[in-house]
Design a protein around this nucleic acid. Structure first.
Lengths: 248, 248
DNA sequence: CGGATCTACGAACACCGTTCGTCAGCGAGC
DNA sequence: GCTCGCTGACGAACGGTGTTCGTAGATCCG
């Protein structure tokens, strides 16, 4: 299920020099890196990050955990591969620097949507500078948009870096809430969110007003907006600042 | 080393000398939650989050891991307590809503500084809505500043939420870089950063220009700014957007 | 055909968070 | 004063984790 936008025809992409080149098994392997990544993603989606262990992946593949290490250096690398695989699902709108702002915004929203669709993958998204082919594809698109719109290279790299950080951070936070929901055992997200929010609001309301006047008074406002509204508000803040810095 | 600003003024320090001291000379090292938290923070600072295990804390205290569970429900709770303990080191400037912008900015910078000073604590900062006394103290200050400056309660809660998320997310990312540095075994942060940045820049430069024109051309600009500059740039973006939304 | 090479994989190592059952010490009630 | 019950400390163990080692078997190259 690979998007047409997924630029993962990798022969012309150099392998990062600091990561040891891994020879892919030519002969006739039943096991392959792609199969392992796909299996890992399936477990991640259906059972969450906490259930994603090397043993669990191996079990799903009908083998032992040691077999995976011929195709994947470590669990961390597997998580990076899964993350890049997810990034491949991002659909990028047609490139047009004249409309940089709505396009960049749409791109950030799409990235957020895709990551949230595989909730727990966000927990490994912040782990490092992603260098996979799909990450590069998105980076080239977003960074290029800022450059071609007239931004200075250093500003553009800073802005791009901050937007990605914000998107991943919000998705990360969301995934933690989600996994907590599952830990509690709530059936629907709606139900959990309502219960959770009620607790928080009740806690804020019960704070001593003489010491926490604002928190206790505005307890309701503090929990009124949900995750999506919060995300968009922060994105708006960033883009307002960005637009002010864009020449022309 | 408790800050004067630390709002935990529990009235537990004056022990009236005329009252007979209860038989407190403990036959054994007298475990307490505070002692456990302090020990955990010490390990976190000196050896990193990966080395912070219940067993390690217990060993440091000369006991077994089971002993800790009488004072701390789980490792997650211990991490939250450590996080709130760290938040207690935040020094807040004098409250003055008229100068909300520089004060809020200073507060964000101070929060960032304190969290980064205990590098790995950021990895548990994003874990959930912190509800400890020191978190409440900072929240009341920042949120109150926005409210008293004239912001609508819902906007103020959104803005506050986003700023805290951003600060923690950046610190989180920074702590990951830091722990990676230690994993590689680099002695100084300077040395590691230089080597890391060189690799990244080399990688971007080696990308095929026909597919990644902007990334390969501006490889140098992409790695030019360090973590602190990136953090401040993003903070500036947020505050610009915020100022535009502030009435008056 | 022999040797080299590489995948697959069982077993094991060194940990982890957490729980159970026990045991010592101590305050309270008879 | 003596017992009773309670609470905190803690050894042992359970069921996991990521990773490595050594080996068996298959495949490719000379």
């Amino acid at each position: 299920m690979r998007s047409l936008n997924s630029g993962d025809d990798r022969p012309d992409l150099p392998v990062p020099p600091w990561r040891k080149a891994r020879k892919q098994p030519q002969p006739r392997p039943q096991l392959s890196q792609e199969l392992i990544v796909e299996t890992g993603l399936r477990i991640l989606d259906s059972e969450g990050l906490d259930a994603l262990s090397m043993r669990r992946v191996a079990q799903e593949l009908g083998t032992g955990p040691a077999s995976l290490y011929a195709h994947v250096a470590a669990k961390e690398e597997l998580l990076e591969l899964i993350y890049d695989r997810v990034l491949g699902e991002i659909a990028l709108p047609e490139y047009d620097p004249a409309r940089w702002q709505p396009l960049l915004r749409q791109c950030a929203l799409e990235m957020h949507r895709v990551i949230m669709a595989h909730a727990d993958v966000a927990r490994s998204a912040l782990a490092g500078v992603p260098t996979g082919p799909n990450a590069m594809r998105v980076a080239e698109y977003m960074f290029g948009l800022l450059i071609d719109a007239g931004m200075a290279p250093r500003d553009a790299s800073l802005a791009f870096d901050r937007i990605v950080l914000y998107v991943c951070a919000d998705a990360f936070e969301g995934s933690l809430h989600f996994s907590r929901m599952k830990a509690v055992g709530a059936s629907s997200l709606e139900e959990f969110f309502h219960a959770y929010v009620s607790h928080i609001e009740e806690y804020f309301s019960s704070l001593p007003p003489e010491r926490y006047p604002h928190l206790s008074e505005h307890a309701k406002a503090l929990v009124e907006d949900d995750g999506e509204a919060r995300f968009r508000y922060g994105l708006d803040l960033l883009f307002d600042g960005l637009a002010a810095r864009m020449p022309g």
